[in-house]
């Protein structure tokens, strides 16, 4: 049953999602693609919307995936799944196990987990890029020239912004800029990105 599957999948994700919203992306992507719930492309669209709306990215993604598979009930169950482990673990730590996090063993475990999670995040981006720019993992390989040019352009904008204003450009602004460039490029040169 889809409701139970959503709840269990996101419970599982909630238990192991170290490293915040970005740390969760590889887990969610794996789950939705292997279950056939979403394609990689749809997943990227969902991430973009989750980034551009207020609230924790993890919760936004869970709600989004949940709704797409099981309507309102699906979204509530997926969200419940993703927050319940964090809620219960923090409750235990706040009430009775305050010293637990300071144990040397816990720390040693986390020292191993942290670089692993960062590797998962970067690899997720790399494989999404391989699929988006070169068609790796799709029916046939191709080169998305427009996508690669846009990647260089937005990297330049982000780096330039940081140089000039001494702070990171907001993800939403960058998403909007990318959308605008793609839209204009498509209007001026039809089928530029085909």
């Amino acid at each position: 049953m889809i409701y139970l599957e959503l709840l269990l999948s996101f419970l599982k994700i909630g238990v192991v999602s170290f490293g915040g919203g970005y740390g969760m992306i590889s887990l969610v992507r794996e789950t939705v693609v292997s279950n056939g719930w979403l394609t990689d492309t749809q997943m990227m669209d969902f991430i973009a919307v989750s980034e551009s709306t207020p609230g924790p990215i993890a919760v936004n993604m869970a709600t989004f995936v949940g709704f797409s598979q099981g309507g309102v009930l699906g979204s509530v169950l997926a969200t419940l799944g993703v927050i319940l482990p964090a809620f219960l673990i923090m409750l235990v730590i706040a009430s009775v196990a305050g010293g637990f996090m300071k144990r040397k063993g816990v720390n040693a475990f986390l020292e191993g987990v942290r670089p692993g999670v960062v590797a998962l995040i970067i690899s997720t981006a790399v494989t999404m890029g391989l699929s988006l720019f070169f068609g790796v993992g799709e029916e046939k390989l191709h080169i998305n020239v427009f996508g690669l040019i846009l990647l260089v352009v937005i990297s330049g904008i982000a780096i330039g912004y940081k140089k000039v204003f001494k702070k990171k450009i907001s993800p939403i602004v960058l998403i909007l800029i990318s959308a605008a460039i793609a839209l204009v490029a498509n209007l001026i040169f039809p089928s530029v990105s085909a």
């Binding site: 990227m44 995040i121 846009l150 990297s155 605008a180 793609a182 490029a185």
Partner: peptide, 17 residues
């Protein structure tokens, strides 16, 4: 069209994060 650009941005954002 817009989302073709947005997907590129998503890859960039995840990578830089």
């Amino acid at each position: 069209y817009a989302f073709e650009g947005i997907r590129v941005c998503v890859v960039y954002l995840i990578f830089t994060a």
